[in-house]
């Protein structure tokens, strides 16, 4: 017997943006409410630890040299270790240490936090869940037990249009010359510039997707080749001339 798809959306204002959490076909509302509370606490805790806008955050103090890494919450070392791995994975195109002003793992933290938030929802009696942190998407399951989620990728110039629809197998991060203007730093030239208008990466872990998308946006083709070789991750770019490129396994939905 078919049932209508039911979903509930929760908005969490955190990290200078809004994170949405969608639960699909939730069959235990009390457990869901508790999980949403845990997600809120987790995200706010991440914000308190990693915000570069909060002067007193452990990361801000580390950047100013007031505390050592050992004096920070263990998550800081964990994230910096993951950032180092992402830097190696991208041959240096993702490099939180290259920016002026000290190490800035912000490009990794949002995806990493959304991934951890999603992990808090895994035990729920739902058909699927989506955590969307300002356009970086982590998910498991689907709108029903039998279907996968689909995600749109918005046009880099116009949020009202889509350039592609993808099957959301787990995570999807999109990077571009985004909200904050030309914020993407090229660690090799010292410029703030993008090679492509929009870069999307899918894969198992949203922190990795986020870092890869940032690298792809800055490095263009060189990073596309790296991602193509990377098992479990696929990429798509849209350049300023309107040419779309994708690795063969990018899960585009065509009809």
């Amino acid at each position: 017997m078919t049932r209508a798809v039911t979903s509930t959306r929760h908005h969490i204002e955190v990290m200078g943006t809004v994170v949405t959490v969608d639960l699909f076909d939730s069959r235990d509302e009390d457990a869901a409410a508790e999980a949403i509370t845990r997600v809120q606490e987790l995200l706010r805790d991440v914000d308190r630890t990693f915000s570069t806008y909060k002067e007193a955050s452990p990361l801000s103090r580390l950047r100013r040299g007031e505390v050592s890494l050992g004096e920070c919450p263990p998550e800081v070392a964990e994230v910096l270790d993951l950032c180092q791995r992402a830097k190696e994975l991208t041959a240096g195109w993702f490099d939180p240490w290259a920016l002026p002003g000290g190490v800035d793992p912000t490009g990794y933290v949002k995806g990493w936090a959304a991934q951890r938030a999603l992990d808090e929802l895994r035990g729920l009696d739902v058909s699927g869940a989506i955590v969307n942190a300002a356009g970086d998407v982590a998910s498991f399951g689907g709108p029903t037990d039998a279907e996968p989620f689909h995600s749109g990728i918005v046009h880099p110039d116009d949020a009202q249009r889509l350039v592609a629809v993808v099957e959301l197998r787990a995570c999807l991060a999109t990077s571009g010359e985004a909200q904050r203007g030309a914020h993407l730093y090229n660690p090799f030239t010292g410029d703030f510039a993008s090679a492509v208008a929009s870069a999307s990466v899918t894969g198992e872990d949203l922190g990795v997707c986020d870092a890869l998308a940032t690298a792809l946006s800055v490095g263009g083709h060189d990073v596309m080749v790296l991602i193509d070789r990377l098992d479990g991750y696929a990429a798509m770019t849209l350049d300023a001339a309107g040419v779309m490129r994708a690795t063969a396994d990018f899960p585009l939905v065509r009809d």
Binding site: N132, G152, I153, P156, D157, T174, A178
Partner: peptide
């Protein structure tokens, strides 16, 4: 890596079953 983009009507037909949207989206290229 270059690929053809989707036909607009194919995307339009898809849109009703999208549960999420990804994109930094505010580029000025």
């Amino acid at each position: 890596y270059a690929i053809p983009l989707l036909e607009p009507e194919a995307l339009a037909a898809q849109s009703y079953k999208i549960q999420s949207v990804s994109g930094a989206s505010y580029t000025s290229a």
